[in-house]
Write a protein that binds this DNA or RNA. Structure first.
Length: 399
RNA sequence: GGGUCGGUGGCAGAGUGGUCAAUUGCAUCAGACUGUAAAUCUGACGCCGCAAGGCUUCGGGGGUUCGACUCCCUCCCGGCCCA
């Protein structure tokens, strides 16, 4: 269930109820793809204020496998995470593994076959199977299996993936309802389900995709009395140069019923999140804070996160220049702690942050940890970046 | 003292007459990363130059050769063996 409590132009704040608690929107979920956020413990995550997280159907299915997760009592208990979890469907792996490396698998109307580059093992995913796995995981929110194409595919191939995504979404919805009945799941324990809007950079394809998905019914307005739940923005939200696709994000959001949750999958940089939120997107997940943290890029607050949503809205139709990209829209900056200039920099990493790293260590020490390639550096940096993201989201909730 | 093997760019270590400013790894200096095949990947890395290109290099000195990191002589330094 999703309730909107306030809106400011197209941006809105609200609340979701799941079987594992309530979530205030907008919110950001770190990616715990294989059941863990790389390098971070549950305590680390709690300490920086992480709540809901994303796990991955395909990766967990491969390892440790569903038999084990069922035996563990579901993914929450396996991970020992009490906050809500959302599972991604495996659709992104169709993009990152198969579309990018055609020898790694095959997509057909009925199913997608993943071939392991390690041992050649074949793993098959169908829309139905993805949903079944997600029920077995016991997550609070699930996503339909979609076909995620690279943005630089020709229009015909993007259109193709849109149609396949729609057909698969329908099959997922049928399977979803079937599983609810089969497993005797009560409404209050029902996992929310999200479809995904594809269409690349083509506004008309995005719109068409949204319309067809609405007909299937993924929202309280268009769907049955149970009230299905949300719409995602799929595939890359930036162009080949990394420029934010403002128009596409804004227009696609406007196609989604306002009572439905809007999930911008894989978004993004802090300024991308702020922009998306200003267009009405509610939920985000991304590997940036953790991966870039592990690679030594540290996010720093600027003037205590001073920015205004109207600033971003006024830039709606602007091309996002490289400058803006690099200065983080003016409310943050980054540093690469690997750079030699930090060797003797005994200042705190971020004076406006009170995470474990910033409370206890200097830039010089963090630089030393990275130069020494000790996992402690990655852990402190990833945790710091996540705290930065969580605080940014808190800021958005108050805007 | 005699014999023997060896001395290559910050380090390790290829190269044994021209295609060598010199493979590769490490270190160094930068960059990238957007529903995680990512503690990963790119690039630079003798000097000058934006570049084309030019200049000086493979322990020191000398020699052979059209041409030497590569062959010869000698000196210096190191390892090993014999006295």
């Amino acid at each position: 269930m999703f309730e909107i409590s306030a809106r400011k132009q197209t941006a809105r704040v609200g609340q979701i109820t799941t079987k594992n608690g309530e979530i205030k929107t907008p919110f950001f979920m770190p990616d715990a793809t294989r059941g863990f956020v790389k390098s971070l413990s549950g305590n680390d995550l709690e300490n920086v204020g992480v709540g809901p997280m994303v796990v991955n159907t395909y990766h967990l299915f491969l390892s440790p496998g569903m038999e084990l997760i069922r035996a563990a009592g579901g993914v929450h208990r396996f991970m020992n995470w009490s906050h809500p979890l959302l599972s991604d469907s495996g659709g992104f792996q169709i993009f990152s593994l198969i579309h990018k490396n055609p020898h790694m698998g095959k997509i057909t109307e009925n199913e997608v076959v993943f071939k392991s580059p390690v041992n050649g093992a074949r793993n098959v995913l169908t829309p139905e199977k993805s949903i079944q796995i997600q029920f077995d995981l016991g997550v609070d929110m699930m996503v339909v299996l979609d076909d995620v194409p690279p943005n630089d595919y020709a229009r015909e191939r993007i259109a193709d993936s849109v149609e396949r995504t729609i057909r698969w979404a329908e099959r997922c919805m049928i399977e979803y309802k079937k599983q609810l009945k089969l497993r005797n799941i009560e409404e209050k324990n029902r996992p929310l389900i999200f479809c995904v809007i594809q269409g690349g950079e083509y506004l008309d394809l995005r719109k068409h995709c949204a319309e067809e998905l609405i007909k299937i019914g993924f929202s309280a307005i268009g769907g049955p009395a149970l009230g299905w739940d949300g719409y995602g923005f799929g595939a890359r939200h930036v162009d080949a140069e990394g420029n934010f696709l403002a128009e596409v994000l804004r227009e696609t959001a406007s196609c989604i019923p306002k009572d439905a949750l809007r999930f911008a999958l894989g978004v993004g940089t802090p300024e991308d999140i702020v922009r998306c939120h200003s267009y009405g997107w509610d939920m985000f997940d991304c590997v940036i804070p953790t991966r870039e943290g592990r690679h030594g890029r540290i996010f720093l607050r600027k003037n205590n996160f001073q920015f205004s949503i109207s600033d971003f809205q006024s830039k709606l139709n602007d091309e996002i220049s490289t400058d803006q990209k690099n200065t983080g829209g003016g409310f943050y900056e980054t540093l690469n702690i690997n750079n030699g200039k930090f060797k003797e920099d005994f200042s705190v990493v971020d004076s406006q942050c009170d995470c474990e790293l910033c409370k206890n260590h200097t830039r010089s020490y963090l630089h030393h940890l990275f130069v020494s390639k000790d996992p402690l550096g990655m852990r402190l940096a990833a945790a710091h970046n996540l705290k930065f993201y969580m605080e940014l989201m808190n800021k958005l909730k108050k805007q």
